[in-house]
Nucleic acid binder design. Structure first.
Lengths: 266, 266
DNA sequence: CGATAGCTTGAGCCCTATCAACAGCTGTGG
DNA sequence: CCACAGCTGTTGATAGGGCTCAAGCTATCG
């Protein structure tokens, strides 16, 4: 996975939240940052810590999780390249969740004070950051509805749809095919089910011809079928209809808009 | 439920997120607002609408809910006096949830542009608003962990603990007694269980001597027991330890701090 | 070539949903 | 004043989705 200039992913992602001015992009490019690598399962920010820097995903995938009853774990978010994983710590005293690498990942750390002073100088940048935060909140609500009111099959289908749309939005999925280093236990912890049952649900999705799913990656064979099973609608992700993020040249934003209406993406 | 000057509840609530300057308080007091009454079950903001004003609870309780599969409903938040129910719409195009009055309620509507210009002029006010938003996000994460990983008894216990602490923080509960106009169906929809099962869980909480619970209200008889059952810890609510909101004079903030550590509050 | 991590499968059981019926209370209208 | 409807709470019976325990399988890796 190539990274390019380290801040480009962040700019792309924020731009999907709100179009930026050239000076905003310059502010981001000027941010001091530390790049670090993490292996699968490594903890990047510990729950209850009070970090003084923000964690930006450059490549790979992170998860936010909370421990419940010392044995159980609930994943509350997945962070994809360009996402800021611990924005909350910028204003709240301690982080109420831990951040872990799912598979190996590359992240950039940006000191709070540098980010804060960039935001003080660039109002549209501030707005983009807050929008990302509000979109994350909308995603929590969507997960709440899904976990609270849908059965296991729908939960997993919904999660796969969300990840697919988000990965396409940052150019890491094409034609609804992508690879993602999560395990079935990660999926179980995100969907509030047991790992054994997650396995059975994945098999059922395969048997129904909705997805092709192996260790190499996931490829969605029947988008509208999967959308129907998961009750998915991409609106809560608030992806700008005009996000021009085509990674190599194809007009992939067409697919994304379709995904938003839950219509077949090809 | 007396309201006092309409903006006082909002000031108190924001002050719990971040201490305000006198000029901030003045900015709030100068906000133009429209006061409105709603009956039990009335919809205040419809899902998918794009409101141009924010909804502040003055008295009573609101819920945010999402519809799932046209028959199911998931409540994602309860809003208590002083809370802003639809902050998200200030920056995102449409609201991904509906807002409904639980019992009868009085709300104030504040136009977005007025709120925005007040925030432009008062940075600490802005910070307080964003903190409230981040606390709401932290609450979503806590609910996700609870609904995803705890059984029905824990979910209801956890919800009751949260509401108790939040009501005490705004002076609407004393000695862990409060009245709240929700129905068992509301509780079911918030906890992701059926209304029949919610009833059985409430009865179990009563039988265990944890709560006294009738149509008049709820009184928590065994705080530490309830906290243990619900796996509750108030830290995610980020209540300032110094919040001096004692409604009549008793030093209720001691109890609140205790509640945060999940130790007996009396 | 073991070892470890992840995936798969089976069996039994428990929590919770669903369906159904009834009681209590409140407001409405004749 | 009583009959009635509607909402909320309560209880019982039944069924099903998902958990737990347990074991076997597969693949990657040092």
């Amino acid at each position: 996975m190539e990274i390019g200039r380290p801040y480009s992913r962040l700019i792309h992602r924020l731009e999907a939240c709100r179009p930026l001015l050239p000076e905003d992009r310059q502010h981001i490019a000027d941010l001091p940052l530390t790049v670090a690598n993490f292996g699968a399962g490594q903890e990047i920010v510990r729950q209850d810590d009070a970090p003084t820097r923000c964690t930006v995903v450059l490549s790979g995938i992170l998860s936010a999780h909370k421990r419940v009853d010392r044995a159980q774990r609930q994943i509350t978010s997945f962070f994809l390249p360009g996402d800021i994983a611990d924005l909350s710590a910028l204003y709240l005293p301690a982080l109420d969740y831990g951040v872990t690498a799912v598979g190996s990942a590359v992240v950039a750390f940006v000191p709070h004070n540098a980010l804060q002073s960039a935001m003080d100088r660039a109002p549209t940048l501030t707005e983009a950051v807050w929008r990302q935060s509000l979109i994350q909140a909308a995603t929590f609500r969507e997960w709440l509805a899904t976990i609270g009111r849908r059965d296991a099959l729908s939960r997993v289908a919904h999660l796969v749809c969300e990840i697919a749309v988000r990965l396409q939005a940052v150019g890491l999925a094409r034609d609804l095919r992508f690879s993602i280093p999560w395990t079935q236990t990660d999926i179980a912890d995100a969907c509030g089910i047991s790992n054994v049952h997650a396995n059975r649900v994945v098999q059922k999705l395969r048997r129904r011809g909705l997805v092709e799913w192996n260790t190499q990656g996931i490829s969605i064979l029947d988008w509208s079928g999967l959308v129907a099973v998961g009750g998915f609608s991409a609106e809560y992700l608030a992806l700008a209809p005009s996000l021009s993020l085509a990674p190599v040249g194809k007009p992939i934003e067409m697919r994304l808009r379709d995904a938003g209406q839950a219509t077949p993406p090809a």
